[in-house]
Structure formats: C-alpha cells, structure tokens
Design a protein around this nucleic acid. Structure first.
Lengths: 335, 335
DNA sequence: ACAGCTCAGGCAAGCGCTTTCCTGGCAGCG
DNA sequence: CGCTGCCAGGAAAGCGCTTGCCTGAGCTGT
C-alpha cells in the first residue's frame, strides 16, 4: 500500500507538501510541485489511510447506527432515512444489526465508541429490562461525556435526543376505529413481550377501544409473518366469536391474513384484520390492509439530523405522528 | 476520551503493560498489576481507539459491502447473508448504498480502500458501460494489489471471485413454463436497460420461450412496483392480445398485478403474471405470484465467505441455482 | 558468594498522517 | 548595497497504540 511518504518521495517533495496538495490545504503550493504530487498520487494509486488521518486530525466523520435488523422492512425504511441525511452531510454510516439481542447492542455501542464515531443512532424499540437499560444508559453517557452525540428512535428511557413514532396514538386510532365499526371481541396479535413498542401499541389499542384486553385475547409472538399466523391460529382457537384480529405490525397481519385464507374465513366479512406500520406490502395483499402509517423514513431522517447537530442543553424529543390508513381488511363487525 | 496513557498512569504501570493486559497478550503480567490495570480501565471507561490500533497493528478486521440499496428487499436479503457470515467471523461490516449510481460506487470502493478494509464485496448487477467497468476493474485491481480481497455478486465482468445468481437459467425456466402453458404473446416488464441483470433475465425468458421478443413487447422501467405498474399499462395498451406479463422482478410483478386489478382484468384467467426473485411478498399477494426463487441469503453468505478466504490463483466462480416456484398467477393461456 | 540465567516490566520506535513552527531565499525598501 | 519582511516549503512533533528489545531484579547452581 502506497503511503504519503512514497508519494512525496516520488514527487520529490516533503510529506508536508504532499499532504497539503492532497487535502487542498489553504497553504499555497507552487503549481509545479502540485502538479508533481498529483501525478505521483495517480501513478501510485495512492489513497490516504483513513485511520492515520483520523489519528492525526481527530475529525470524526463516520456515524454508527444500531438497528435490530436492516433486512427487516421496518428498519430498511428507517435506515433509508438515516442514510439519506448522513450521505447528504458527507458522513459514512456503519450499520450494526443487534438482531434484538441486548448484549450485542451493548457491544456495538462499545465498538462504535472505539471507532471514534461522531454520533450513534439507536433505532428500534427499547426493552423492558431495567438492568440492561441502566447499562446502556451508562455506556451512552460515557460516550457522550467525550463529545459523542447520541440520538435514539423510539426509546423513552434514553435521557437525550430522541425521535418517537406515535405508537400509542396510532394504536389508539386503530382501537377507536375497531370500536366504531362495532368490534367488541378483538384478538390482539402482539410482538415480543419485552419490547416497549409492543406494550405501547397494546396499551393504545385497548385505550382506543375503551376496553381492557383480557389476557387470553392477546398473543405474543415474533414480529414476523409466521409469528402472526401462529398467533392468529391460537387466538381463533382459544377465543370463540372473535370479530377482528389486530396485529401489532403488518408482517404479522399478513400472516394472519394467510392463515384466515387457509381456513376459509372471509376477510373482512367474517373477521376483520388490521395491521400497523403501513409497510409497502400492506397495500399489495388482498384484501389490502387497514393499518397505521408511521413515517419511517422521516423517523430515520430526523434522528440522524438530531444526531449530527450539536447537542443542546435540553434533550430534544420529537414525536412523529401516526395516521390511520383505511383499506379493505377492516369492515363492520358481523351482526 | 481516556487514552491508554491515562489508564497506565492511573494504574501506575507503563503503557506497554497496560496494552498487554488489555489485549490479553501472551506476555505474562503479574496478577496485581493486571488487577490495577483492569480497575483503571473500568474507572475511566476506557475503550481503545480503534484507529490507533489499526495503525499500530495493521490487522484489518472490517469488510466493506457496496449494494444498490439495503432497503430494497432484494438487497436486504443478500445483506442478511453477508452479515451473517461476517458476524460469525467477527468482522464488522460497512454497508454502502450506491443507489445504482456508478460514480458513487467508484467513490465507495476508493473510500473503503482508505478504510483499510480487509475485503470488499460488490453486490448487485453490473452495468452495460465499458468505461465504468474498466475504471472499476482498475480500482479493484489496485486494491487487490495491496492485499485486499474482492468478491462480487452477479457481475460477470469482474476477473476474480464471484458468486452468480442463475439469472438466465431461472428466466429460461420461466419462459419454458409460459410456453408450456400456451402463452405466445407475452409482454416483458424489464428492469433498467443498463443493468446486466436485466439483459440476462430478458435473454433467458426469450430463450425459454423459444421465441424472439419483438421490441414493442418489452418495456424497460425501474425495478419497482410503480415502474412495473407503468410498464404493464403501456404494454397492455400497445400490444393487443397479450396473454401474459413477465416481470423481471417481483416488485414489478406486484405492480402489474395492482394495475390489472384496477383495470378489472382477471389474473390468471385473462392475463397471467410471473415475477422473479421470490421475495416474501410474492407469496402474500393475490393471486400468489409464480416466480423464480433465487437463494439470496445464500448468495450473500457465499460471497462473504469467498471474500474472507485467502485468494487463490484461479478466480472462483460459484453459480447458485434458480428454481421455479409455481403459484397461482400463471395459468394456461386463454384460448 | 558470585556467575549466569530467567523473566516481568519498561523504553522507545514506529504505524501514516496533519500541522505548527521554522528556515532560507527572494523582493522591496531605505 | 544592506536590511527587513514575506512566503513557499520542510523538519519534526505528535495523534494513540503495539511490540521488539532491553534492563534489572530475583533465582539457581556451583
């Protein structure tokens, strides 16, 4: 690997001069020398060692992002927003997948700190786990103490800049709509119990329906299609007379739809289904899913924006509103 | 930010000793000193500066990945495979989105080189652009010349390790199936013209149908739902008597389905639709898409594996087979 | 008791770069 | 013609870390 010294030698100048022309320093350099340096760079295919640069000039330009899983459509959308802003600002993004493993999340924060990243964005639900939360907060505080910036998406517990999807509000909208259409016996297909996203949405649905949800009408499962199908099956078997299934994300709702079709249950004539998130797939299934739209790209974009802005004394918390999207999978409750 | 020197000072040892206990060097260190160092590390929340470490001990542990767009489900899957292997091997992954911009791709390769990454994986179709291809090959060669490893996914032009989806084979399967079911007037909804993926699949379809495709039966559009819908509309309007629409990826097929439904055309009774890739959505739409499955996760996993293995003299090229997935959107051609 | 060994721990070089400060040559001035 | 001032270019000091090599203390063996 060619080094700056190699370039300087070949151009017959000092490393200082070479560095200056390569970085477009403000210090003037005679055209002839500049020329020679540039030619040497080209000849040697020289690319500066980013690590050496970062050591010498501690100007952190990369930002770290920890998500549950980029390949999950939810995070894919959020990440798109994150990336857009970062790229616009000339920042490189390191994406880390925690796969919903709190330990791994902790490790990544540590590692990102070691990478001297300018900012860390934590995307994705928090956990109902005080011990973990404390450790995380501690680590983030240590990072921030050294000038690092942190922004989180959808984590109430973090005492800093945050952008929050209106999970509870959106769920309330959904609950109210179910109630308006006469649904009284609603099964809820919930996500993993330990996620705050799950509990927020769950609470919102109940509130919107102006009812308490008996435990047997709630099934917790993975936030996936298959999880949704399984939970739907259990719910249908366990609770007779259900008129609607509220899935706490769209993947699960799609799973429920699949199961219902397999069982020959008509949607929404016999059983209605609603989802959450308004993923692209929601509009493509049949019947098209009634769901709640979350501005996912915007969520990511705002979080990155906050992360790249200098800290202010008071933490900024932005809540991005949810919106009910009426499609075909929700109808009036059968008489 | 606490440095190793701080830790050493606080522990009352030399930086050398501190470094050794922190990295678990083979050199023995007395328990008492070790203890003191560890305590200092904890007290100061010390995390080694990864850049300084990389400078001092040029042991590259991160790998770079350039994809068109992680949020695209196709690449989300591929990325999942890439990540899995990388993580298993203890490697950090830097993901770069080129957004199908060749220039950006070039820049990223350069940047990754500067980051001293251990390997670069280029995922995603190549371009029909000899100039770009030459420049890219040149840059990659420069990188490899300094010990970097490169693996590509689905790019014939790269003279090195590669893993290839069987685009042409899969398309041939699809074409043959269309033919078998009596379809003779088939419209093709193709992806961007400049992508090799598009031309490979297009050629395969024609070959499988044992027919040449008149230009007016092919429409090029973005590899998206909307692109698919638009192309489908154009095709339907331009070519009367079409019995099937072959989209060159599933998103476009879904778009076509949507358009057909909007126009009240029954699928597959009046017009059949086929897709490509077997994305999760393919099974969820109605009618479920007949498509070709590509082992996307595996594609990523293999590519990363190749990239992390030492180079061998002869480039390795692995072709991962495609498989026809029969569902409901393809039926016999109407009489 | 002393030579010679072992071994824990420290010194210092060096990774590739940036940047401050200095130098030496030149023009401009008195 | 000599002095000052200016400026392009270079020397060198780090940035934070690892590691080869050296040192000196404590042993062993005779």
């Amino acid at each position: 690997m060619a080094t700056l010294a190699d370039v300087a030698r070949r151009a017959g100048v000092s490393p200082a001069t070479a560095s200056r022309v390569i970085n477009g320093s403000s210090k003037p350099v005679a055209d002839e020398l500049r020329e020679r340096v540039l030619r040497a760079v080209a000849d040697l295919r020289y690319v500066p060692n980013a690590h050496a640069q970062l050591l010498a000039r501690p100007q952190r330009s990369v930002v770290g992002v920890v998500v549950h899983d980029v390949s999950d459509p939810y995070f894919a959308e959020v990440t798109r927003g994150l990336q857009r802003v970062a790229t616009d600002r000339g920042r490189l993004v390191i994406i880390c997948n925690s796969y919903r493993d709190p330990e791994r999340e902790l490790e990544y924060v540590e590692m990102l700190r070691g990478q001297q990243v300018a900012a860390i964005v934590l995307a994705g639900s928090g956990y109902h786990d005080p011990d973990f939360t404390a450790r995380l907060t501690e680590k983030l505080a240590a990072y921030e103490a050294t000038g690092g910036r942190v922004a989180v998406i959808g984590r109430h517990e973090h005492p800093g800049d945050a952008v929050m999807p209106a999970n509870a509000d959106g769920a309330r909208l959904l609950g109210a709509e179910l109630r308006r259409l006469g649904h009284r016996r609603v099964g809820v297909i919930a996500g993993p119990r330990e996620l705050t996203t799950t509990s927020d949405r769950l609470a919102g649905v109940a509130e919107g329906m102006a009812a308490t949800l008996p435990p047997q009408r709630v099934r917790y499962a993975d936030f996936t299609r298959d999880g949704g199908a399984r939970a739907a099956a259990e719910l249908l078997d366990a609770v007779p007379g259900l008129t609607a299934l509220a899935a706490l994300n769209d993947s699960m709702a799609v799973g429920a739809l699949t199961l219902l079709r397999a069982r020959g249950v008509r949607v929404p004539a016999e059983v209605s289904v609603v989802g959450f998130d308004d993923m692209p797939v929601a509009a493509d299934v049949t019947p098209a899913l009634t769901t709640v739209r979350l501005p996912l790209v915007e969520l990511g974009a705002r979080a990155m924006t906050l992360a790249l802005e200098p800290a202010v004394d008071r933490p900024r918390v932005e809540v991005l509103p949810a919106e009910l999207v009426r499609r075909d999978s929700l109808g009036p409750a059968p008489a």
